[in-house]
């Protein structure tokens, strides 16, 4: 199998951009990062199979490997569902807190306080 350098660089770019967005407290940026990484992952899956014509019986010439395509099709639809779910969560979070950022986990903060409190005794 041959390697497509352009697509490989593109995959790296999508992952890098997506990860940078995801490392934010801003939930909207996390959502954007999730969607961008989704494209990168799909292209990585695609590059694991040989390219060619559409995988339909009766077409002339060699056809592309259909298995990565089936996996990606599943991935695309799941990405849609999860993006919508994330959107709903962002909206609900905004309704409750009037902000679109994710705060520190209160339980972890409480444990930290518990420990520093115990240490000062």
């Amino acid at each position: 199998m041959t390697v497509n350098v352009v697509v490989a660089v593109l995959i790296g770019g999508l992952f890098a951009g997506g990860v940078y967005l995801m490392l934010s407290r801003n939930l909207l940026r996390v959502l954007l990062g999730f969607m961008v990484i989704g494209h990168g992952a799909n292209l990585l899956l695609l590059s694991s199979g040989v390219g060619g014509g559409a995988p339909i019986v009766g077409q002339d010439g060699t056809h592309a490997d259909p298995i990565p395509q089936a996996l990606i099709l599943t991935s695309i639809v799941i990405t849609l569902a999860v993006s919508c779910f994330l959107l709903a969560m962002i909206y609900r979070n905004y309704q409750l807190t009037r902000q679109s950022e994710v705060p520190d986990d209160p339980d972890d903060v409480a444990i930290e306080e518990l420990r520093t409190g115990a240490g000062s005794e």
Partner: peptide, 10 residues
């Protein structure tokens, strides 16, 4: 971190 992940995936 982002560049590291991107480089790994490439």
């Amino acid at each position: 971190i982002a560049i590291g992940v991107g480089a790994l995936m490439t």
